[in-house]
């Protein structure tokens, strides 16, 4: 890519990324605060990656996703994961039609653009597997027929970190399929007051449709074109490698603390998320700030801690912070 190409791309992005501002404005009509979460939802949407949201109940996780679906003219489905949910309830099944005397396909709720998999850890492994396979393959097989899922296809799964009883924690291999794991925190005091005021009035604000799915697909193409220099590639690989071989990156103190480091999927997703972040910031090229901005969300579910780390109260957040503070910025 030449200098002039980047300049041209930069100009294009200035124009094409204007809708991000519109979505933000519409979403913030409904959701107060949670800027980080909304920004991550946009990254997932633009980088074509699924998102796992984790937070205690009542932090507007579901509201954020339903609102995002409502500002885009797209099909939205909410699936409440329960212990008795079956894969067929999710994907669809073959039903015998007495009228036509043959089996007909009844597609499940997964055939939508935005899927809200609420409390994903409440369903057993077979249902989680069915969803995660569809997320990866972006297609569903019912009977002997395979159906591609409509683009954009974005799964936003939520899970509650507090409850452990009656839950089926997602296996590491399946968590890895989520591009980002976003931790949602409580709102600020001022924000909470505004939430309170908004909810006690008779009219609850509603987000308007401002975008079509085709706009998202088009924006995704532009995001992929965002220039990622080799220096940034090296920076990303250094960050990911430091989670695998900490002692090679002056992080010997974490040598026995990490069971397994981030996978190559982490590198890919970090690059894609950084591109999307640069797009949101209306830039045609990625800078180290973009990588650092998404590093936590990309890596936190991809690092496995050892018992020693747990005994010493070391979290993945501590490790990622230390990695970012140690790996040299290009």
């Amino acid at each position: 890519m030449m200098q002039s190409d980047i300049k041209e791309l930069n100009e294009r992005i200035q124009k094409e990324s204007a809708f991000v501002e519109m979505i933000n404005m519409e979403l913030h009509k409904v959701i107060i605060g949670q800027k980080h979460m909304v920004e991550r939802l946009m990254i997932g949407l633009l980088a074509n990656g699924h998102i796992l949201l984790e937070g205690v109940p009542g932090l507007a996780k579901t509201l954020a996703i339903t609102s995002l679906a409502s500002v885009i003219d797209a099909r939205f489905a909410r699936i409440q994961f329960t212990p008795d949910l079956l894969p067929a309830d999710l994907l669809g099944t073959l039903i015998y039609s007495q009228k036509s005397e043959e089996f007909v396909v009844r597609k499940g709720p997964i055939f939508a653009n935005f899927i809200l998999a609420d409390e994903i850890n409440r369903s057993p492994a077979k249902v989680q597997s069915a969803l995660l396979e569809s997320m990866q393959e972006r297609q569903v097989t019912i009977g002997d027929q395979t159906y591609p899922l409509e683009e954009p296809f974005l799964v936003l799964a939520t899970q509650n970190p507090i409850e452990q009883e009656g839950t089926y924690p997602l296996p590491e291999a399946q968590v890895d399929r989520f591009m980002l794991k976003v931790i949602i925190n409580y709102p600020q005091k001022e924000e909470e007051k505004m939430i309170l005021r908004q909810n006690i009035t008779s009219t609850f604000p509603k987000a308007n449709k401002v975008l079509k799915t085709s706009d998202i697909i088009k924006a995704r193409e532009v995001v992929r074109e965002v220039y990622l220099d080799e220096k940034i590639e090296n920076y990303i690989t250094d960050i990911v490698f430091s989670s695998r071989y900490p002692s090679k990156f002056k992080l010997s103190k974490y040598e026995g603390m990490i069971n397994y480091g981030a996978s190559p999927r982490a590198s890919i997703n970090m690059a894609l998320a950084a591109k999307a972040y640069a797009f949101i910031k209306r830039r045609g090229y990625v800078i180290p700030e973009d990588v650092r901005a998404v590093a936590h969300d990309v890596m936190r579910h991809r690092i496995g801690l050892s018992y020693e780390a747990e005994a010493e109260n070391i979290t993945t957040e501590d490790i990622i912070n230390e990695i970012l503070n140690t790996v040299e910025v290009p």
Partner: peptide, 10 residues
């Protein structure tokens, strides 16, 4: 320097 390093600016 950022523009030169990450955006191929000359």
């Amino acid at each position: 320097a950022d523009l030169v390093k990450f955006a191929k600016m000359e």
